[in-house]
Amino acid sequence: MLLSELPLGKKAKIKQLTCTDLRLKMIEMGLYEGVEVVKELETLAKGPMAFWVNDYLLSLRYSEAKMVEIELID
């Protein structure tokens, strides 16, 4: 599953980052393998979405969230 497909309010664990150019920035912002994220906000028409990452709110574009593979946690 991709981070961009995570339903609102659901929790997931990051499996891997599939991009090259955004990798470093993602890691710096706290998105790396094993980290748990919860989807908190979304906007219309594939606009940005926001996730809780380690107690802070990080917003990503749809295209950015697509670069993160996740595993759903119940």
């Binding site: 920035k25 926001a50 709110l57 990080l58 917003s59």
Partner: peptide
Amino acid sequence: NKDIFMLELPF
């Protein structure tokens, strides 16, 4: 170059 968004939404 590609624009990076990734924005912190502060409390």
